[in-house]
């Protein structure tokens, strides 16, 4: 029973981090119908940012996520300005291919600058601490990251649903021309959405280096999982992404523990295929 609970806790903690990464992707996908293939590499860049701030300046990831969140906002906005803006109105796949080019670029620039070595911040404030309740162990770095992720997701959701900016974003997502006629500067909304999407993954990446080693390939798996989560949750739905992320986290940890570690991603990707076969637009999609 304890083992079962422990595996579940691990799954949920991982799932919440996936959820934050996926929320950023979901925003972009939902508003602009663009898959940002470089999303996983955004995470990698954010992790390097937080890592180097920690290693060179001695600032802990519990604070440096602010910097990496802001930095990734900038990168997201730049991606829109320099690349995505030109692919609007072309075939749906062209933005994906352009961002794949960006992904190769970011990954290999980091490989060139920082070498393929795995780097982990030692001596962080949270590192190595655990909380134990009733036999179930909560590792503190994972717990703080997961709770931080949850808070950011709730904030983003609130922002989209309840603020004037959020309404403008929703209006742009529904009908770009009509939104323009209502006086919404859709160009600015797109820029903001791409920036916000970057920020979400930037905050996740900023918190991660306290327990996860960073290397140029670290983003690939997170990126793939984020695609699967967003597609499974349904087109641009943040609650859908949260639900699907928790599902993916749980499937990953349960199949990894009870079947075999190598099968955990086979199970996750098979689950995705199964879900879209039954509901081609995802669980919460329309």
């Amino acid at each position: 029973m304890i083992v079962f609970l422990q595996v579940m806790v691990n799954g949920i903690l991982n799932g919440l981090v996936y959820a934050l990464v996926a929320t950023g992707l979901s925003l972009i996908w939902g508003v602009m119908d663009v898959i940002n293939f470089a999303h996983g590499d955004y995470l990698m860049v954010a992790m390097y940012t937080s890592f180097w701030i920690g290693a060179l300046l001695g600032v802990d990831p519990v604070l440096s996520w602010i910097v990496s969140g802001a930095f990734l906002f900038l990168i997201g906005a730049l991606t829109y300005k320099l690349i995505i803006r030109y692919t609007v109105g072309r075939s749906a796949i062209s933005a994906l291919l352009a961002t794949f080019g960006l992904s190769m670029f970011l990954k290999n620039v980091c490989l060139y600058l920082f070498s393929p070595n795995f780097r982990l911040l030692s001596k962080t404030v949270l590192g190595g601490k655990t909380i134990e309740t009733g036999g179930v162990i909560f590792p503190v770095p994972q717990l703080v990251t997961a709770l931080g992720a949850l808070v950011v997701i709730v904030l983003v959701y609130y922002m989209v649903k309840k603020t004037r900016l959020g309404w403008a974003i929703q209006a742009t997502a529904m009908d770009k021309e009509a939104a323009e006629l209502m006086g919404i500067d859709t160009e600015r909304i797109y820029l903001l959405v791409f920036g916000l999407g970057g920020s979400c993954v930037g905050i996740a990446g900023g918190l991660l280096p306290s327990y996860l080693a960073v290397h140029p390939e670290v983003g690939l798996l997170f990126g793939l999982l984020a695609f699967v989560i967003v597609a499974m949750g349904g087109f641009g739905s943040i609650p859908g992404a949260l639900f699907a992320a928790l599902l993916v986290g749980l499937v990953e940890s349960f199949s990894g523990f009870f079947i075999a570690p190598v099968f955990k991603y086979v199970a996750v990707f098979a689950l995705y295929l199964l879900v879209v076969m039954v509901r081609p637009k995802g669980l919460f999609g329309w």
Binding site: D33, A92, V266, Y272, L273
Partner: peptide, 26 residues
């Protein structure tokens, strides 16, 4: 898989590659 369209099709093909890769690994 051809029943899916657009991004859903693309992501499904990614997923298939990952499944095959991991199965061949073991």
């Amino acid at each position: 898989v051809f029943r899916l369209s657009g991004h859903y099709f693309a992501i499904a093909t990614f997923a298939i590659v990952e499944i095959f890769n991991r199965l061949f690994m073991v």
